[in-house]
């Protein structure tokens, strides 16, 4: 018996989300009184995972897997889980994790608990707590299969250092040529900016900002905070901001630690996409704006006065706390 964590890499390096999933999986292994095995693919420093509780690390080295391939990666996870007798497999909720988790679970004849937000409620029966109804509710789901896959929601657990002795071993899954029927032709990244999916902090603007020319102060705010920028739907529809910044029910979901909404009214379709964020701050001139009901902290005020001050004060704060 063991717990297996698939720790994703990007160009050989682990993502923060992989350390979070490893920290989580280590706790699950503790609950099951077993050890945590990690699987990584083409990681340049696989032993880093021992800092977060993995006592055995399987690293695959195979140039065919340099590009993400959901089917082939899912196959590798299945083979590693079987080789290690894993009864629980943990996969993160990056776009790649969401893509491959159902494939891996299906191959393992395992029940999948996607969007899991906490440690298992119990391990016998095996019950996980997941989000449902666009984060308006939680659902306790029992996974009734002998092997279980947990899809850990973003920013649901946190990263915890927990250094253990570890061995690193090579792992060589047999690859199925049919998995390579899907060929990556090009990857387009919005360069040099923190993406909404990867960001801990998201600074978001709405129609209250009046026009695209006023986004300079938001970008400055995002820069001091190391945040990604986002916007409400009408802002993207008006072409004030690119469509990939639109968040909400019909846009991107945001599960950040801190979401700062500036000049956004807080319509239910907007909130549906950002509810999973931990701490919400709203800056709006209208004290009756629905966002104040959903936020943790609020300033009733004019963004054009508040935001520049916030930028200056945060700069000073960052300097003092550097």
């Amino acid at each position: 018996m063991s717990v297996l964590i698939f720790a994703e890499t990007s160009e050989g390096r682990f993502k923060k989300i992989s350390f979070e999933a490893t920290s989580y999986a280590a706790k699950v292994a503790e609950m099951l009184q077993t050890n945590l095995v990690a699987l990584s693919i083409n990681a340049s420093e696989p032993s880093q995972l021992s800092d977060y509780g993995a006592s055995k690390i399987l690293n695959v080295k195979n140039a065919r897997l340099d590009n993400f391939n959901a089917k082939a990666y899912a196959d590798a996870i299945k083979q590693a889980a079987e080789a290690e007798g894993a009864t629980v497999v943990v996969i993160d909720s990056s776009s790649n994790g969401l893509f491959l988790a159902p494939l891996a679970a299906y191959n393992l004849k395992a029940g999948l608990g996607s969007n899991t937000v906490a440690l298992p409620v119990s391990v016998a029966p095996f019950i996980v707590k997941r989000t449902a109804f666009s984060n308006k509710a939680f659902c306790q789901t029992e996974l009734t299969t002998s092997v279980k896959v947990i899809g850990l929601a973003k920013n649901a657990f946190g990263v915890f250092e927990n250094k253990v002795e570890a061995t690193v071993e090579a792992f060589d899954p047999s690859l199925n040529d049919a998995d390579f029927n899907i060929v990556s032709k090009e990857i387009n990244k919005t360069s040099g900016k923190v993406s909404i999916a990867d960001a801990d902090i998201v600074v978001s603007g709405g129609r209250g900002l009046k026009g695209p020319e006023n986004w300079g102060m938001l970008e400055e705010l995002a820069e001091v905070l190391g945040a990604a920028t986002a916007c409400s739907k009408p802002v993207a529809d008006l072409d004030w901001r690119p469509h990939n910044e639109h968040v909400g029910q019909t846009g991107k979901p945001v599960a950040a630690n801190l979401y700062i909404a500036i000049g956004i009214s807080g319509a239910i379709q907007h909130l549906a996409g950002i509810n999973a964020s931990k701490v919400k701050v709203v800056i709006n001139t209208d004290p009756e704006a629905p966002f104040f009901k959903a936020a943790d902290y609020g300033i009733v005020g004019d963004a054009f006065e508040v935001v520049p001050q916030l930028v200056e004060k945060l700069k000073a704060f960052k300097q003092n706390n550097a």
Binding site: C139, F292, D296, Y297, I299, V300
Partner: peptide, 24 residues
Amino acid sequence: SSKTVSFEKPPLRGACKLVDADNI
């Protein structure tokens, strides 16, 4: 492969803490 045990709604959130616009 799974079954729903129960649903729950998130705990009611505390009221939004308002901060004065002059007190960033």
